[in-house]
């Protein structure tokens, strides 16, 4: 797979390294001469081609061969640049998959198909979720969003007063758009069946597709698991 990474900071560089190790053809771009090429910290990476230039410019993207690129990852430290790079990739070059980094969570609302973004990742958001997940017993934490924000993986650690205790998975009363995909109990992953009984302390992982009734679905899941 041919991947173009825009932004050669630590995120971009590490992505390039890992993708190249997996055998992909990686191109990485940055405007900063000091990070590109032989002068970069740690030297150039095997299997990765470096370019110095502005990924927000159509002419430059053409020059580096974007028309055969399968995936563009816009991972600069600047949200505006990431949006422009995403839109140009989709609109001018019909890149099949565009992934973008969200630096400031306040901008997350823009990172969707309006700006050519197929998948966005907000590191602060992810980290917050993981922190909450570690400390929150009894409330619902959103771990991950998939499919451009239409599907979410949420997690509830069942508190002692949860209405779900001692009920079977099939009888939890979850809305139709939610599916219990796993239980984590004492470090073991349990693939639930309809008659699996949940216990206090279980981490319940639910996959939810949010349609037009997102708030109602959300409330229903909380009502069933949190109380």
């Amino acid at each position: 797979m041919k991947v173009l990474i825009a932004g050669a900071g630590s995120v971009g560089r590490h992505m390039a390294e890992q993708l190249a190790l997996s055998g992909h053809d990686v191109r990485i771009v940055d405007v900063e001469p000091s990070v590109v090429g032989d002068k970069a910290d740690g030297g150039p990476i095997d299997g990765v081609t470096w370019f110095l230039g502005d990924a927000c410019e159509v002419g430059f993207l053409n020059k580096i061969g974007i028309e055969t690129i399968d995936v563009v990852a816009a991972v600069t430290g600047d949200d505006e640049d990431n949006l422009v790079i995403s839109l140009l990739s989709k609109q001018e070059f019909a890149v099949p998959r565009v992934v973008a980094r969200v630096n400031n969570p306040k901008n997350e609302w823009m990172f969707n198909e309006m700006w050519g973004v197929d998948m966005s990742v907000s590191t602060p958001h992810l980290l917050t979720a993981l922190v909450e997940e570690a400390v929150n017993v009894g409330s619902m934490v959103r771990l991950l969003s998939l499919e451009g924000g239409k599907t979410h993986l949420v997690e509830v650690t069942l508190a002692p007063d949860s209405p779900a205790l001692k009920k079977e998975v099939g009888g939890l009363g979850l809305p139709r758009e939610a599916a219990v995909v796993a239980l984590v109990r004492a470090g073991h992953v349990i693939v639930p069946r309809n008659d699996t009984v949940v216990q206090g302390g279980d981490e319940v992982l639910v996959l939810v597709s949010l349609g037009s009734e997102a708030e109602a679905t959300d409330a229903a899941i909380r009502a069933a698991l949190v109380g």
Binding site: K90, Q91, E92, F93, A94, V95, P96, G116
Partner: peptide, 15 residues
């Protein structure tokens, strides 16, 4: 006039 991508069977232009 533009560049289309394949969306299933139908080519799709964006702006």
């Amino acid at each position: 006039e533009g560049v289309a991508m394949n969306r299933g069977d139908t080519p799709e232009f964006t702006n």
